[in-house]
Design a protein around this nucleic acid. Sequence first.
DNA 1: TTGACAAGTGAACGCCCGTTTACTATAATT
DNA 2: AATTATAGTAAACGGGCGTTCACTTGTCAA
Lengths: 201, 201
Amino acid sequence: MSGTKERILLAALGLFARDGYEAVSVSDIANALGMTKGALYKHFKSKRDVFESIVVRMEQRDAEQANAHGVPEGPPEDMGDAYRSAKIDHIVAFGKAMFRYWTEDDFASQFRRMLTLEQFRDTEMGGLYQQYLASGPLDYLTELFAAIGIPQPRREAAELYAPMFLLYSVYDGAKDKEPVRALLDEMLDRAREHLEGVRSK
Amino acid sequence: MSGTKERILLAALGLFARDGYEAVSVSDIANALGMTKGALYKHFKSKRDVFESIVVRMEQRDAEQANAHGVPEGPPEDMGDAYRSAKIDHIVAFGKAMFRYWTEDDFASQFRRMLTLEQFRDTEMGGLYQQYLASGPLDYLTELFAAIGIPQPRREAAELYAPMFLLYSVYDGAKDKEPVRALLDEMLDRAREHLEGVRSK
DNA sequence: TTGACAAGTGAACGCCCGTTTACTATAATT
DNA sequence: AATTATAGTAAACGGGCGTTCACTTGTCAA
């Protein structure tokens, strides 16, 4: 038990997130930690093993995040306006927390960028990217909206998630991050107002 | 004049768009065309040269696209409601055309995915990605909205562009592309209705 | 007909890749 | 105190990398 395995994981993730898996050599990872590449093979059996351990680690973190901030299943039918309004508040707050998680948490932010770079390599990577960052969140929000009786739930889900998704990229390229966070909050607040104005059929 | 240079460019772009620049070897490109890598150096002086030629080619295509579908500068002040409404129609139609261009045009679609994979490598690549796909279109729409007196032009620009940007990624991962195009049209039409309801101050 | 040139082959160059191996030092267990 | 396990080094392995070079074609102008 020495924490070296963890340090290798984090260093590799940082490099994978900037250059992509193939462009990073085992020596690059080892050098970033001031060790030789031979030592790295005491902790991982291959370069691919490092990558896969990162994915496993993210799955663990994601499960924790979901338990902490997740939106539990609500009662399926006959809800009052006040209850639905509270639900909408909760979902929008959840969206803001998600944005901060994927931009400000070091591990999640780097993992997001790494997936972005690997998404077209094969169907497995494409699936992971979709699941974590594209159609996954979209489908999840669609179900939440459907469950509280919002009409056209997919369109509303896209309306809510699209600003988050766009601003991930704007955030990554922005020198000053603060206006991006502010714009995100403005847009999600406007989405919330819109949603609360929508009548369930 | 044999068109071989062009074929090399297209083959390389296809591979770069799937695997990323570093993960593609000169042999890969040559093999895709049934030639040896030595022949490739009769047309380009290095692997980097191939990449840079692709970027130059995209710049040419983009300039043509802008001339064909571009929104010219309108008269700066004192416009009637009918004129502003026509302007909004034009901008939204321009957005739909842009989406189809970046998803259905082979060259543009592959170039978009290639830039997505290279965006974090250095500031130059990051700049290109932002310019073509993230803050660039956003800033452009912001200026258009500001020019016709729409209040909070940046927020409205983000509201219009965000669905396009999200659906690029959903489109890439979708087995059936048609519902994605339909959702995009729905969302842009709703944005248009919203914009026409907004009063200029 | 000859000569220049354009386009392609295939082998070679030095270098770096991912991985394995032999070996060393330190720490923990018996 | 002797042994075993752990975590590291350094060198070597075969192979693929980007690039160059000597050489062969075919085409077209002089």
